[in-house]
Computed example of a mutant assay.
Amino acid sequence: MKKSLLTLLGVAAMSTTALAADVKPALVYGTGGKFDKSFNEAAFNGAEKFKKETGIAYRDFEPTGDTQGEQAIRNFASRGFNPVIAVSFAWTSAIEKVAAEFPDTKFVIVDAVVDKPNVRSVVYKEEEGSFLVGTLAGLASKTGKVGFVGGMDIPLIRKFECGYEQGARSVKSDIEVFQNMTGTTGAAWNDPVRGGELTKNQIDQGADVIYAAAGATGLGVLQTAADNKKLSIGVDSNQNHLHPGSVLTSMVKRVDLAVYNGFSDVKADKFTAGVLALGVKEDGVAAAVDENNKALITPEMQAALDKAKEGIIAGTVKVHDYTTDNACPK
């Protein structure tokens, strides 16, 4: 009996080891760098949380161009990594191709939809989170003029801007909103100098709150706003701590959850393919309030924020999604 029990324990231990060996996570970032303090860094934080909790290491790669992204995704899949998570709409075509080549590998793509039986597509209702921070911007502005600096000029970033504009107009109907996009290539995500220049131009026109949705380029937006004693709004990660007292809030987009849950679900054999759309109701997007910005948020602003959030969850506040018709209501 003792021998039999030892044998069973040995088999159980081997089974656990085999299961753990099946989880060999990999992560491919978007261009702009792992430590952009924004989108990519949120993904990194999700992977680190998984590693800390499970003790399972992961591999990651920082592409500097579009071709490197596809090469990295294919390389990870061919070497038996599972799951492989691609953090950027830029890797849509790569995931479509590689997922078909490796049907037994699980893939996750963030910010795009790929219809494959082994792919989970995680998208966000950025318009909802941007509406919330736009509400705060509209109430915080003393000039009646606010700004937006986007990264790459694509419908996804226009979606941020449109939600922001709707939020600002919901509390101040005649507010003026300036907007600029940094560029039309992947380099637009990693140009803080240009981000600063665009911000200064908007400030010179009277903007006193500027929202950055531009990856590492946004660091230049936040810095320039702080230097000119204006308010800024961070994005993706909570950036309130970067310039306490100057960053009004951050539109937090839980990219970390997409990565953490992707790794964890494969480990637990609970992975499901299909589309996950995360908005305010799902805690996928939010306006960050913490010790770094609470002095900037007046009771009136907090009440307006709470009301907007409740309205979105209840369905009484409907935020237009720019990507449905490539237009923003005025």
Rank of each mutant, 00 (worst) to 15 (best):
M251W: 03
D321Y: 00
K142C: 08
E70M: 07
V317H: 07
G129A: 02
A100D: 14
G183P: 09
V280W: 02
K294M: 12
M14K: 07
G218E: 09
G196P: 08
K145T: 13
V209M: 05
G151E: 10
R158F: 04
Y211Q: 00
G206V: 12
F35P: 00
A304W: 08
S246G: 02
I313H: 04
S246N: 14
Y58C: 03
A308P: 06
A42L: 00
K106S: 12
F271A: 10
S121W: 10
R59H: 12
E165G: 00
I312A: 06
D66T: 14
K229E: 14
R169Y: 03
V266P: 07
V280Q: 05
V28R: 06
K49D: 14
S264G: 00
K142S: 13
G220D: 09
Q71H: 06
A288H: 07
L27R: 06
A86E: 08
G167S: 06
G220H: 07
F102A: 02
G284R: 08
T64K: 13
A20P: 02
A99R: 04
V255P: 01
T199D: 13
K106H: 15
L305W: 03
S4T: 13
F160D: 01
I203H: 09
V133C: 09
G129K: 01
G129W: 01
A212T: 10
A13T: 15
L27P: 04
G10D: 09
K281D: 11
L219H: 08
G129R: 00
T92I: 08
D60P: 06
L136T: 01
